[in-house]
Design a protein around this nucleic acid. Structure first.
Length: 470
DNA sequence: AAAAAAT
């Protein structure tokens, strides 16, 4: 199967070739012909399956000016509207539109909150055919009458289940009320829950269904590991793993925004370049964090679930759950940030005894037991256990030097306790994907070219650490 | 129970 055989125009094919892609992914093979035919489509697919290009490419094809058509009108109505749950995802989708529309005379812009209004108004006034937006700011423009949606031909709801979770549906209904009744609708969702099916029924007309990956199953090619660890030792274990595996680059998920800030500061104190991303950060900080991470200037991106879905970073080798998510589905989304587009990756979860319920829920959701792993030698630098009720003064917290001591200097009792917790005899180590960076992908879908491409040597790195089991 | 999104 090739992109040519899907019937895309030469200009679009040229952009695809520019990006170095040759073979469409399964979701693209299924979705592109349907979208080209003008069908409504509901698709269950996560980002990383090539979903974004799956709708971007055929939409560009449909909107491109026909060679035979009359000269384009002076005023350019918005012909396609893409709605996404997060600002970052909106930005990413528009990047994709720009990339694949490079050789076409179609213009696009992205609309979201947290940034100044006037530049967006200006872009809209100049005329664009494609708008990618988050719902809130889009409605803001509607109220200010700075946007006209009356000519929209194609509506895309991206990550619809996320938008549902986030309570965007009333906003989306308001937006839809402003669109022409006759239009093409595309709905993408990680899973088809009952709620999503209902939403879909209300919006789509006789949709074709595309389902590539079975819902609630984790992608093949992602090695999942659990490191059991007491909550108060997680930070020490994390830095230990980052240094010893080593982990060149990873997204580390925390449960709260505050937790993300704290962990980020602590990592930096340990000389591990880190950046944090969550909704309390300013939009410019969010963008900078993401850029630094994608450019490799920062090795750890500490994130809340803002980054659990949709973020598309090429060749991300590791995802680390510093804390397990409360909603088991979010585990699937988080680890989906690695092992994308046919490459392989590793998802590590630091799990404390208090999190056993979450762990159980996750394992029953994904219908597998996640392999447990122990970091040999970790006890050497573990923090000294403090007696109950005697916490250090606040200012001493996070002072790494005072937190830890070599084993030799600890009391015998403590040393014995450690041995019990962390047997010296190394347990069989898990099998890691043949190589985290194996090059034999069947295909590498067009997913935007930002990315971390310098970790191809990881198989060697990992091979040393995670030897194969018999 | 937490996070995201308009100001």
């Amino acid at each position: 199967m090739t992109f040519e055989s899907l019937g895309l125009s030469p200009e679009i094919l040229r952009a695809i070739t520019d990006e170095g892609y040759t073979t469409p992914t399964p979701v693209q093979v299924q979705a592109i012909p349907l979208v080209l035919a003008g069908q409504d489509v509901q698709a269950a697919a996560q980002t990383g399956t090539g979903k974004t290009a799956g709708f971007t490419l055929p939409i560009l094809h449909r909107l491109q000016p026909m060679a035979s058509s009359s000269p384009s009108p002076a005023r350019h109505p918005i012909r396609c509207l893409v709605l996404t749950p997060t600002r970052e995802l909106a930005a990413q989708v528009q990047e994709s539109v720009k990339t694949y529309g490079r050789h076409l005379a179609l213009r696009s812009t992205v609309i979201y909150g947290g940034v100044a209004m006037p530049p967006q108004v200006k872009a809209l006034q100049a005329g664009v055919e494609i708008v990618v937006a988050t719902p809130g700011r889009l409605l803001d423009h509607v109220q200010q009458k700075t946007i006209n949606l009356s000519q929209v031909e194609i509506l895309v709801l991206d990550e619809a289940d996320r938008m549902l979770d986030m309570g965007f549906i009333p906003d989306i209904r308001k937006i839809i009320a402003l669109l022409p009744e006759r239009r093409q609708n595309l709905l993408f969702s990680a899973t088809f829950s009952e709620d999503i099916k209902k939403l879909s029924q209300g919006i789509l007309n006789n949709p074709a269904t595309v389902e590539v990956a079975r819902s609630n199953t984790t992608a093949e090619g992602i090695t999942q590991l659990i490191y059991p660890v007491e909550a108060e030792r997680k930070r020490a274990l994390l830095t230990h793993l980052i240094r010893t595996l080593p982990i060149p680059q990873a997204i580390v998920f925390t449960r709260t925004k505050h937790g993300a800030n704290r962990l980020c500061a602590q990592l930096e104190k340990e000389q591990i370049p880190a950046a944090a991303i969550h909704s309390d950060k300013t939009q410019s900080h969010r963008m900078r964090s993401l850029e630094q991470f994608k450019a490799g200037e920062v090795s750890i991106l500490v994130a809340t679930d803002i980054a659990a879905r949709g973020l598309d970073i090429d060749q991300l080798p590791f995802v680390i759950n510093f804390e397990l998510p409360h909603v088991p589905e979010d585990y699937v989304h988080r680890i989906g940030r690695t092992g994308r587009a046919g490459s392989e990756g590793c998802a590590i979860s630091l799990v404390s005894p208090e999190e056993s319920r979450e762990r159980q829920a996750i394992e029953s959701l994904i219908k597998q037991t996640i392999r447990e792993e122990v970091s040999v030698n970790f006890e050497v630098v573990e923090p000294v256990q403090r007696p109950e009720g005697r916490r250090p003064p606040r200012e001493a917290e996070g002072r790494s030097r005072t937190d830890r001591r070599p084993v030799a200097r600890q009391s015998e009792v403590e040393a014995v306790e450690q041995v019990v917790r962390e047997p010296k005899v190394p347990r069989p180590v898990p099998e890691v994907p043949r190589s985290v960076y194996s090059h034999h992908h069947f295909s590498r879908p067009p997913l935007g070219s930002s990315g971390i491409k310098k970790h191809r040597e990881i198989p060697a790195l990992l091979g040393g650490l995670l030897k194969k089991t018999p």
